[in-house]
Protein backbone atom coordinates (compact mmCIF):
# COMPACT_ATOMS: atom_id res chain seq x y z
CA UNK A 1 0.00 0.00 0.00
CA UNK A 2 1.04 3.61 -0.46
CA UNK A 3 1.67 4.95 2.99
CA UNK A 4 3.94 6.95 5.25
CA UNK A 5 6.01 3.82 5.91
CA UNK A 6 7.37 3.92 2.34
CA UNK A 7 9.99 6.54 3.10
CA UNK A 8 12.74 6.11 0.51
CA UNK A 9 13.66 9.53 -0.89
CA UNK A 10 11.10 11.48 1.15
CA UNK A 11 12.25 15.12 1.13
CA UNK A 12 11.16 16.16 4.63
CA UNK A 13 13.45 14.06 6.70
CA UNK A 14 16.16 16.17 8.39
CA UNK A 15 19.43 14.92 9.87
CA UNK A 16 19.96 11.41 11.18
CA UNK A 17 20.43 11.64 14.93
CA UNK A 18 22.28 8.80 16.56
CA UNK A 19 22.16 8.29 20.32
CA UNK A 20 25.53 7.42 21.86
CA UNK A 21 25.57 4.07 23.68
CA UNK A 22 21.94 3.50 22.87
CA UNK A 23 20.29 0.69 24.88
CA UNK A 24 18.12 -1.91 23.08
CA UNK A 25 15.02 -0.54 24.82
CA UNK A 26 14.15 2.85 26.30
CA UNK A 27 11.35 1.88 28.67
CA UNK A 28 10.02 -1.21 30.41
CA UNK A 29 6.86 -1.15 28.27
CA UNK A 30 9.00 -1.35 25.11
CA UNK A 31 10.58 -4.55 26.44
CA UNK A 32 7.18 -6.09 27.15
CA UNK A 33 5.62 -4.91 23.85
CA UNK A 34 8.57 -6.40 21.94
CA UNK A 35 8.34 -9.73 23.76
CA UNK A 36 4.54 -9.93 23.50
CA UNK A 37 4.81 -9.35 19.74
CA UNK A 38 7.37 -12.13 19.33
CA UNK A 39 5.55 -14.54 21.60
CA UNK A 40 2.05 -14.00 20.18
CA UNK A 41 3.10 -15.02 16.66
CA UNK A 42 2.79 -18.66 17.72
CA UNK A 43 -0.74 -18.74 19.22
CA UNK A 44 -1.88 -15.93 16.91
CA UNK A 45 -0.93 -17.79 13.78
CA UNK A 46 -0.19 -14.72 11.69
CA UNK A 47 2.93 -14.39 9.56
CA UNK A 48 5.54 -11.62 9.30
CA UNK A 49 3.89 -10.08 6.24
CA UNK A 50 0.58 -9.79 8.11
CA UNK A 51 2.46 -8.14 10.99
CA UNK A 52 4.13 -5.67 8.65
CA UNK A 53 0.81 -4.80 7.04
CA UNK A 54 -0.80 -4.28 10.45
CA UNK A 55 1.99 -1.80 11.25
CA UNK A 56 1.95 0.15 8.00
CA UNK A 57 -1.81 0.20 7.34
CA UNK A 58 -2.64 3.36 9.24
CA UNK A 59 -3.06 7.07 8.47
CA UNK A 60 0.21 8.88 7.77
CA UNK A 61 -0.21 11.16 10.76
CA UNK A 62 -0.65 8.17 13.04
CA UNK A 63 2.34 6.33 11.59
CA UNK A 64 4.58 9.37 11.81
CA UNK A 65 3.57 10.45 15.30
CA UNK A 66 3.92 7.06 16.98
CA UNK A 67 7.26 5.77 18.19
CA UNK A 68 8.50 2.48 16.78
CA UNK A 69 7.25 0.27 19.61
CA UNK A 70 3.97 2.20 19.82
CA UNK A 71 3.41 1.02 16.24
CA UNK A 72 4.34 -2.54 17.19
CA UNK A 73 1.90 -2.40 20.09
CA UNK A 74 -0.92 -1.03 17.95
CA UNK A 75 -0.27 -3.72 15.33
CA UNK A 76 -0.19 -6.67 17.72
CA UNK A 77 -3.40 -5.42 19.36
CA UNK A 78 -5.04 -5.18 15.95
CA UNK A 79 -3.95 -8.68 14.95
CA UNK A 80 -5.37 -10.10 18.19
CA UNK A 81 -8.60 -8.09 17.98
CA UNK A 82 -9.19 -9.14 14.36
CA UNK A 83 -8.99 -12.77 15.43
CA UNK A 84 -11.05 -12.21 18.59
CA UNK A 85 -8.24 -13.54 20.75
CA UNK A 86 -8.98 -10.53 22.95
CA UNK A 87 -11.60 -7.78 22.94
CA UNK A 88 -11.25 -4.04 23.52
CA UNK A 89 -13.11 -4.10 26.82
CA UNK A 90 -10.57 -6.59 28.14
CA UNK A 91 -7.64 -4.27 27.40
CA UNK A 92 -9.58 -1.46 29.08
CA UNK A 93 -10.38 -3.62 32.09
CA UNK A 94 -6.87 -5.04 32.34
CA UNK A 95 -8.22 -8.54 32.84
CA UNK A 96 -9.73 -11.37 30.87
CA UNK A 97 -13.53 -11.11 30.68
CA UNK A 98 -14.11 -14.15 28.49
CA UNK A 99 -12.85 -17.66 28.06
CA UNK A 100 -9.71 -17.94 26.01
CA UNK A 101 -10.09 -18.98 22.40
CA UNK A 102 -8.42 -22.32 21.77
CA UNK A 103 -5.00 -21.82 20.14
CA UNK A 104 -2.73 -24.38 18.51
CA UNK A 105 0.20 -23.75 20.83
CA UNK A 106 1.86 -21.07 22.88
CA UNK A 107 5.49 -20.13 23.31
CA UNK A 108 6.75 -21.73 26.52
CA UNK A 109 9.96 -20.81 28.25
CA UNK A 110 11.68 -23.97 27.07
CA UNK A 111 10.80 -23.30 23.42
CA UNK A 112 12.21 -19.78 23.20
CA UNK A 113 15.77 -20.63 22.21
CA UNK A 114 14.67 -23.13 19.58
CA UNK A 115 12.04 -20.76 18.16
CA UNK A 116 14.57 -17.95 17.79
CA UNK A 117 17.22 -20.25 16.35
CA UNK A 118 14.84 -21.74 13.82
CA UNK A 119 13.53 -18.39 12.61
CA UNK A 120 11.20 -18.47 9.66
CA UNK A 121 13.12 -19.15 6.46
CA UNK A 122 11.24 -17.96 3.36
CA UNK A 123 13.02 -19.88 0.62
CA UNK A 124 10.92 -22.58 -1.07
CA UNK A 125 11.55 -25.22 -3.71
CA UNK A 126 11.24 -23.68 -7.16
CA UNK A 127 8.45 -24.96 -9.36
CA UNK A 128 9.38 -22.97 -12.48
CA UNK A 129 12.51 -21.56 -14.10
CA UNK A 130 13.62 -17.98 -13.35
CA UNK A 131 12.54 -15.56 -16.04
CA UNK A 132 15.52 -13.21 -15.66
CA UNK A 133 19.28 -13.76 -15.50
CA UNK A 134 22.11 -11.64 -14.10
CA UNK A 135 22.71 -8.64 -16.35
CA UNK A 136 19.18 -8.49 -17.75
CA UNK A 137 17.61 -5.05 -17.87
CA UNK A 138 14.27 -4.78 -16.16
CA UNK A 139 11.80 -2.10 -15.20
CA UNK A 140 10.01 -1.99 -11.85
CA UNK A 141 6.32 -1.90 -12.61
CA UNK A 142 4.24 1.15 -11.88
CA UNK A 143 1.65 -0.05 -9.40
CA UNK A 144 -0.19 1.21 -6.36
CA UNK A 145 -1.90 -1.74 -4.70
CA UNK A 146 -4.04 -0.86 -1.68
CA UNK A 147 -2.68 -4.01 -0.04
CA UNK A 148 0.79 -4.95 1.26
CA UNK A 149 3.71 -4.80 -1.15
CA UNK A 150 7.47 -4.68 -0.82
CA UNK A 151 8.19 -2.70 -3.98
CA UNK A 152 9.09 0.79 -2.73
CA UNK A 153 7.57 3.73 -4.60
CA UNK A 154 10.91 5.34 -5.41
CA UNK A 155 11.90 2.55 -7.83
CA UNK A 156 8.53 2.12 -9.57
CA UNK A 157 8.74 2.88 -13.27
CA UNK A 158 12.54 2.91 -13.21
CA UNK A 159 14.98 0.79 -15.15
CA UNK A 160 17.44 -1.41 -13.35
CA UNK A 161 19.66 -4.43 -13.82
CA UNK A 162 19.43 -7.90 -12.33
CA UNK A 163 22.47 -8.21 -10.06
CA UNK A 164 21.66 -11.56 -8.47
CA UNK A 165 19.08 -14.28 -8.76
CA UNK A 166 18.45 -14.77 -5.04
CA UNK A 167 16.12 -17.74 -5.01
CA UNK A 168 12.48 -18.73 -4.86
CA UNK A 169 10.84 -16.97 -1.92
CA UNK A 170 7.46 -16.52 -0.24
CA UNK A 171 5.63 -13.62 -1.94
CA UNK A 172 4.71 -11.06 0.74
CA UNK A 173 1.92 -9.44 -1.27
CA UNK A 174 0.02 -12.73 -1.18
CA UNK A 175 1.17 -13.95 2.22
CA UNK A 176 0.10 -10.72 3.95
CA UNK A 177 -3.51 -11.13 2.87
CA UNK A 178 -3.78 -14.78 3.89
CA UNK A 179 -3.91 -15.90 0.25
CA UNK A 180 -0.98 -18.26 0.73
CA UNK A 181 2.77 -18.13 0.28
CA UNK A 182 2.62 -18.16 -3.56
CA UNK A 183 6.44 -18.19 -3.79
CA UNK A 184 8.18 -16.52 -6.74
CA UNK A 185 11.68 -15.89 -7.99
CA UNK A 186 13.37 -13.09 -6.09
CA UNK A 187 16.10 -10.90 -7.59
CA UNK A 188 18.51 -8.27 -6.36
CA UNK A 189 18.01 -5.38 -8.78
CA UNK A 190 20.35 -2.40 -8.99
CA UNK A 191 19.43 1.10 -10.10
CA UNK A 192 21.76 3.98 -10.90
CA UNK A 193 21.26 6.93 -8.59
CA UNK A 194 20.84 9.21 -11.61
CA UNK A 195 18.04 6.98 -12.95
CA UNK A 196 16.13 7.39 -9.68
CA UNK A 197 17.01 10.94 -8.64
CA UNK A 198 18.13 12.79 -11.77
CA UNK A 199 21.33 14.24 -13.10
CA UNK A 200 22.35 16.05 -9.92
CA UNK A 201 22.68 12.78 -8.06
CA UNK A 202 26.14 11.48 -7.15
CA UNK A 203 27.10 9.57 -10.33
CA UNK A 204 28.83 6.93 -8.23
CA UNK A 205 25.65 5.98 -6.36
CA UNK A 206 23.95 2.67 -6.96
CA UNK A 207 20.89 1.49 -5.05
CA UNK A 208 19.49 -2.01 -4.94
CA UNK A 209 16.22 -3.52 -3.86
CA UNK A 210 15.18 -7.15 -3.70
CA UNK A 211 12.27 -7.56 -6.10
CA UNK A 212 9.95 -10.49 -6.74
CA UNK A 213 9.49 -11.51 -10.37
CA UNK A 214 5.97 -10.13 -10.69
CA UNK A 215 7.25 -6.65 -9.69
CA UNK A 216 9.38 -6.57 -12.85
CA UNK A 217 8.99 -6.35 -16.61
CA UNK A 218 11.67 -6.61 -19.32
CA UNK A 219 13.26 -3.28 -20.32
Amino acid sequence: MDGAHDMGGAPWSGPVQAEPNEPPFHAEWERRAFAITLAMGMPGGWNIDMSRFAREDRPAQDYLSKSYYEIWLAAVERLMLERHLIERDEIAAGRSLRQAKPVARILKLDDVAAMLHRGRPTEREANCPARYAVGDHVRAKVMHPPTHTRLPRYVRGHRGTIARVIGFHVFPDSNASGAGEAPQWLYNVTFNGTELWGKDCDPGLEISVDAWESYLEPA
Binding site: P24, W29, F34, L38, A39, P43, G94, K108, D111
Partner: peptide, 28 residues
Protein backbone atom coordinates in the same frame (compact mmCIF):
# COMPACT_ATOMS: atom_id res chain seq x y z
CA UNK B 1 -1.88 -0.35 28.46
CA UNK B 2 0.99 -2.79 27.92
CA UNK B 3 0.66 -4.04 31.50
CA UNK B 4 -3.07 -4.51 31.02
CA UNK B 5 -2.49 -6.35 27.77
CA UNK B 6 0.09 -8.67 29.29
CA UNK B 7 -2.25 -9.46 32.17
CA UNK B 8 -5.10 -10.32 29.80
CA UNK B 9 -2.85 -12.50 27.64
CA UNK B 10 -1.39 -14.27 30.66
CA UNK B 11 -4.82 -14.92 32.20
CA UNK B 12 -6.01 -16.36 28.91
CA UNK B 13 -2.93 -18.56 28.75
CA UNK B 14 -1.67 -17.15 25.45
CA UNK B 15 1.69 -16.06 26.81
CA UNK B 16 4.09 -17.47 29.36
CA UNK B 17 5.57 -14.46 31.24
CA UNK B 18 8.81 -16.37 31.82
CA UNK B 19 9.14 -16.81 28.05
CA UNK B 20 8.67 -13.05 27.63
CA UNK B 21 11.43 -12.42 30.16
CA UNK B 22 13.76 -14.73 28.27
CA UNK B 23 13.02 -13.07 24.93
CA UNK B 24 13.95 -9.70 26.42
CA UNK B 25 17.04 -11.04 28.15
CA UNK B 26 18.21 -12.66 24.93
CA UNK B 27 18.16 -9.42 22.96
CA UNK B 28 19.50 -7.31 25.81
Amino acid sequence: RVRALETVLTEKGYVDPAALDLLIETYE
